[in-house]
């Protein structure tokens, strides 16, 4: 037994070295991408975060080209995009839910409402809870911030760690996202007078602004067709 182990120790050693080199290169790339994502998740500082993220992505791609075992680029993009998408959605809605009387919210959110979605302008801060008073809007906020976006953030972190539960939970939360898009747009269509009357860029403006949040629709086809063996138990 000892002899066998010793005879193969060179091979295991090479394998281990490759593994540790790969992990170190991935960690180095992730440190840049995490820093970039924290800044991008703040919205206003996003332009400072993007170069950091892109540099980390380049480090990862170069390490993979050099032969190290790195996370697939598409998994990296899905993971970090889901985090940014959840952060931006949560921040906007949390401002409306909890900080609806701050000056920044009354300029940013109601200004955005006047330009793209009257639900965030119409009778704003008249509801006892404050913020948007459009039918159904508060229910979406209360349901989605703690349930969907928190779960999706956790799933994205698991996915970036190449965990099987991360892939599975991202599938679950992206399907929740499909339900959200369907329900939310149906609500907006039924109450279209409130959402789009007197709005500067109605309907097409809203779609142009919000289309970039279609992460679930781009993630699901990949998550269902990737070889799941690459994610560890």
């Amino acid at each position: 037994m000892t002899a066998i182990t010793n005879s193969q120790s060179g091979n295991f050693g090479n394998y281990d070295a490759h593994q540790s080199d790969s992990a170190a290169a991935q960690l180095r790339a992730d440190k840049w991408m995490i820093s970039g994502t924290i800044l991008m998740g703040t919205a206003i500082l996003g332009l400072f975060g993007l170069p950091l993220f892109l540099y980390g992505l380049r480090l990862q791609i170069n390490a993979a080209k050099a032969g190290l075992s790195m996370r697939p680029t598409i998994v990296t993009l899905i993971g970090y995009l889901v985090i940014i998408d959840s952060a931006l959605n949560s921040m906007g809605w949390t401002l409306d839910l909890f900080a609806n009387h701050t000056l920044v919210n009354r300029v940013l959110t109601t200004g955005w409402g006047a330009m793209f979605d009257g639900g965030y302008f119409w009778h704003y801060n008249e509801l006892w809870l404050g913020g948007a008073g459009a039918p159904g809007e508060k229910a979406w906020e209360i349901a989605l911030i703690p349930v969907l976006f928190c779960a999706r953030l956790a799933a994205a972190i698991g996915l970036l760690q190449m965990k099987r539960w991360g892939q599975q939970w991202l599938i679950v939360t992206c399907w929740m996202g499909v339900i959200v898009w369907t329900g939310y747009n149906t609500n907006m269509t039924i109450f279209a007078d409130i959402r789009y009357s007197g709005v500067t860029f109605p309907v097409w403006g809203w779609w142009l602004y919000d289309i970039w949040y279609i992460t679930p629709f781009l993630s699901l086809p990949y998550l269902h067709t990737v070889n799941r063996e690459i994610f560890s138990e």
Partner: peptide
Amino acid sequence: CLVCLVFEAALS
């Protein structure tokens, strides 16, 4: 989507 979201969020 990632690039557009970042620009949009930063400039809004």
